[in-house]
């Protein structure tokens, strides 16, 4: 558990004059569940966007260690012509979104098939003439999609439109879709937002099972402190774009800076 999968070094993200993240440093250990917490507007999602390649960090380095050696996320993004955020996913980082982004008018299975496009992308002619290679690749993709539907308990909804599913299932489908890209690191942006307590418990089981069974490292942004404290191995606390605490859940919970900056503000609000 000592080898870091992701190293964030001195990352600063500016939007014009606004500094969203300043000099952020932390490591994500392999096989661990790392939680990013902090008040709204603390810069958690901005950092997520930097890690998953949606933003290019203004300064600093984000390095993912892969089977083929370390990969600098910033370098993937700035590659001429072919560069872009899709390379980050191909390097092994998958993500979900705070406001669910499914392909709503496609079926649940099709959502998962889209995610496997790298494995099924046979050439055009073999697809047009339904060659044996093409059919085998398609069949395997469907099998893999159903495997993940089984893992997420969504098999009964396989042939429904993704947009028709209840909210909790849409959340699980989004995780299943991210898993279909065979990631090393999955970044979940507020996966428990809008879930009821039973669904939250289910979600924590899902996350822990993913980590245990699939050799996966998990990063999660979450406001549900009960969930964060129960599942995470490592917690990084943000406030105003800087890391104010970094350690095990217990260490962080007792950190005076966290209590002051995070919980203290809320108490003051109550007092007003």
């Amino acid at each position: 558990m000592t080898e870091p999968v992701l190293t964030v070094e001195n990352v600063t993200m500016r939007f014009g004059g606004i500094v969203a993240n300043q000099n952020v440093n932390f490591k994500v250990d392999k096989g661990a569940i790392t939680a990013l917490i902090g008040p709204n507007g603390a810069g958690k999602t901005t950092l997520f966007n930097c890690i998953t390649g949606f933003y290019r960090a203004s300064e600093g380095r984000i390095v993912l260690s892969t089977a083929e050696g370390p990969r600098d996320i910033g370098a993937l993004l700035s590659r001429p012509i072919v560069g872009g955020s899709h390379l980050v996913t191909r390097a092994g980082i998958a993500r979900t979104f705070q406001n669910i982004r499914l392909f709503r008018e496609m079926t649940v299975v099709e959502n998962l098939l889209v995610a496997q496009h790298l494995d099924t992308e046979a050439n055009l002619l073999s697809g047009v003439f339904k060659s044996a290679v093409f059919r085998r690749a398609e069949a395997e993709a469907v099998e893999r999609a159903f495997y993940w539907l089984g893992q997420m308990n969504l098999v009964d909804d396989a042939n429904r439109l993704a947009g028709e599913l209840p909210y909790g299932r849409q959340r699980r489908l989004e995780i299943a879709r991210a898993m279909c890209t065979s990631p090393r690191l999955i970044c979940l942006d507020e996966p428990a937002a809008g879930l009821n307590p039973a669904e939250t418990i289910e979600l924590s089981e899902v996350i822990q099972r993913l980590r245990a069974d699939h050799d996966l490292t998990v990063m999660v942004i979450e406001h549900d402190m009960h969930l964060v404290m129960s599942i995470s191995d490592h917690v990084v606390v943000f406030d105003h774009g800087v890391v104010i605490a970094d350690g095990t859940p217990k260490e962080v919970a007792n950190d005076p800076a966290v209590v002051a900056a995070y919980l203290g503000v809320e108490e003051k609000e109550v007092a007003e």
Binding site: H86, F97, F103, R104
Partner: peptide
């Protein structure tokens, strides 16, 4: 008709539905 049931056709439709989600799945949207 074949294109629609091929990976490329599904990618087109996925791109129509949500470009950002496509990028997060490693789709080269360009």
């Amino acid at each position: 008709n074949r294109l629609k049931s091929m990976p490329i056709g599904r990618l087109w439709e996925a791109l129509r539905e949500d470009e950002i989600a496509c990028r997060s799945l490693g789709v080269n949207h360009v």
